Simulated assay, not measured.
Amino acid sequence: MSRQWKGWGPGGELPEQHYLIEPRHLAGGGDIRHVTEYLRASGWADRTPRAGTPIVFDSPDKSVRLGYDTAAMPPGWTVSGRTTLDEPAWHVTLTAHVPVEIIAGLTDALTQTRPAHAPNVWAPLEEQNWATARGKHFTATSPDGDAWVQFHQSPAGGAHWWAGARTEHGRTWDAVFSQNTPMHLVQGFATALADPQPVMRPRGHVPATDRIRTTSVSVLPSQLAAWKQARVTAARTATWARNTWAARQPRKPAPRSHTARNGAAAGRH
Rank of each mutant, 00 (worst) to 15 (best):
S2W: 14
R3Y: 09
R3P: 03
K6Y: 14
G12Q: 08
E16M: 10
L20W: 11
E22N: 13
E22A: 15
P23E: 04
H25M: 05
H25L: 06
H25P: 03
G30D: 00
R33I: 12
V35M: 05
L39N: 03
R40Q: 07
S42F: 02
A45I: 07
D46W: 04
P49G: 09
P49A: 06
A51D: 11
G52N: 12
I55N: 05
F57L: 07
D58G: 08
D58H: 08
S59A: 10
P60S: 07
D61Y: 09
D61M: 06
Y68D: 00
D69K: 08
P74W: 02
G76Y: 00
T78A: 12
S80T: 15
G81E: 02
L85W: 14
E87R: 13
P88A: 06
A89F: 03
A89I: 08
A89W: 08
V92C: 00
T93Q: 09
H97T: 11
V98N: 01
P99R: 00
V100G: 00
I102Q: 01
I103G: 00
I103Q: 03
L106V: 02
L106C: 05
T107S: 04
A109I: 04
Q112Y: 04
T113M: 14
R114Q: 07
A116D: 11
H117G: 10
L125Y: 02
E127K: 13
W130D: 00
A131H: 13
G135R: 08
T139H: 10
G145K: 07
G145M: 06
Q153R: 08
Q153D: 10
G157E: 04
A163M: 03
A165P: 00
A165F: 02
E168S: 13
H169Q: 11
G170Q: 03
T172E: 13
V176Y: 09
M183V: 13
V186C: 01
G188K: 00
T191A: 12
A192N: 06
P202Y: 05
R203T: 12
G204W: 04
V206C: 03
I212T: 05
I212H: 01
I212A: 01
T214Y: 05
T215N: 08
V217I: 07
V219Y: 01
V219H: 00
V219M: 06
L220Y: 04
L220F: 07
L224T: 12
A234M: 06
A235N: 01
A241R: 11
T244Q: 09
P250G: 08
R251E: 09
R251Q: 14
A254T: 13
A254F: 14
T259C: 10
A260H: 10
G263W: 07
R268W: 13
R268C: 14
R268K: 15
R268G: 11
H269R: 14
